[in-house]
Design a binder for these strands. Structure first.
Lengths: 256, 256
DNA sequence: TCTTATTGAGTCATTATGACACAATAATAG
DNA sequence: CTATTATTGTGTCATAATGACTCAATAAGA
């Protein structure tokens, strides 16, 4: 595989757009927590967002989608562009520097991939259980989920990118299929509430959340199921896709 | 001036980022209508958004700001990045082709400015009366305001860019200082309502709008003033800047 | 002085919200 | 087999917000 990155660094400028990159913030939900998928880089073992470049004839949305698939194995996932980061300091990717140094102490300091990049940020909402985290062995050594409230210090401006992703998600919370993509087919009201609480950054009243969510008429209630807890078993719900997406067009209710 | 564009097309790649452009959607409010500032291009006299390129050491926000100033004479204006447009078809700018043809029938088809561009969209909210529309004589022949509901067919994907700007403005209407930037210091409730109606795309009840807007506690009421109409004179209001921006942090009420 | 368009303010029935209360119940402890 | 415990489904209730109105006040022109 090392072969391919080396080739990419030598010839990438021939088939990818220069100066543009993609960063994906991949959200998943597990054990009551909203999580982000990160890669551990070969540079100082620091964590980073999965990202990549755009092919010359590719829509930037396609590029984001392709990169997402490479990291999660998932396709046809909810992916939303949220912001573009264009500080002039976004250059000299230390991971690539390190990689190039590994190849040759006197590496090419004018390599195309070390120039300034404007990065387009996308966030993905994925179903945790369906993801099989993968990572490109050349620049990263691991891939794993991290709790949103316990993020490590990330490379470059990646902490800022995640913050912005969450902020944009919050601003559009009533116009995006939040739970639909993060939860499995059937889920409890509690887990849906947890997602809203994390995105909004505050606790919600259980009974009121229940009432409001049901009032939208977008949920179908299933039968109760074994819950594993020493308490009353909760109902399971699933989204009524048709009603949900119809309701989203005009936006759900205001806030919780 | 023709000299400078020619020089720019020859040497621009030395000091601007390649493959990135900026498009500004400049909103103004006049005579009860929300308007957009457009340039008339030398290509088929078609209208287009004011746009430009990013210098190599410049933040993309600065570039947008600089371009805005070049077209309106205004600085320190509310400017918000809203979306990045990256279809692969965004190439071969016909205006520049026409300009290059004017210089030389056998113009350089590989000129850097004819390649594919990913364009970052910004919208600006400006006070109509303070704007003195300007236009660069080399690629455009005029600059003028156009009603949002009577837009001509624009170059490239510029119609789509304006639609998206309006959509994003609508989604964030409760978190942006809408009126603050579009209206003069003192304004009537009716004009503020018109802005909301245009952005939201529907009529609002006058009395209810009044009640709700006042309930936010962000407006200071001035004395009535001569209005020129054959009817009761309306009060004038101004935004209480401090209270307004404080209220915006958590977002104003949902909808009207 | 009268007419007209538009404004500021108010009413009222309906719905939404926030803050609780309480009985029901699935697993576990004894 | 019963008691305990945590959590759930549902209900209440005071308060606030909303949508659809009404109506007197008034600035300018007829």
């Amino acid at each position: 595989m090392k072969q391919s990155l080396e080739h990419f660094l030598k010839h990438g400028h021939e088939f990818t757009l220069q100066g543009i990159s993609i960063d994906n913030v991949i959200f998943g939900f597990h054990e009551g927590q909203l999580k982000v998928l990160l890669l551990q880089s070969i540079y100082k073992n620091m964590w980073m967002l999965p990202g990549g470049f755009v092919n010359k004839t590719e829509h930037i949305d396609e590029a984001a989608s392709r990169i997402l698939k490479e990291r999660t194995g998932l396709s046809a996932i909810y992916l939303q562009q949220f912001y573009t980061f264009g500080q002039p300091e976004r250059a000299n990717n230390q991971i690539l520097v390190k990689f190039l140094q590994g190849l040759n102490k006197n590496y090419d300091k004018d390599n195309w991939a070390l120039q300034r990049f404007v990065s387009v940020g996308y966030y993905a909402l994925v179903e945790f259980a369906k993801v099989n985290p993968q990572h490109p062995g050349e620049i990263s050594t691991a891939s794993s989920w991290h709790d949103l409230d316990k993020l490590p210090e990330l490379l470059m401006d990646h902490n800022q990118i995640i913050s912005k992703a969450l902020e944009e998600l919050r601003l559009k919370i009533n116009n995006q299929p939040i739970g639909y993509n993060l939860l499995p087919k059937e889920f409890t009201m509690k887990s849906l509430q947890s997602i809203y609480e994390t995105i909004l950054g505050r606790k919600l009243d259980r009974a009121n959340f229940n009432r409001k969510m049901l009032s939208y008429g977008i949920l179908d209630r299933k039968e109760k199921q074994y819950s594993g807890g020493a308490h009353k078993a909760p109902y399971l719900y699933s989204f009524n896709k048709k009603k949900y997406f119809k309701a989203l067009q005009s936006g759900l209710g205001r806030d919780f």
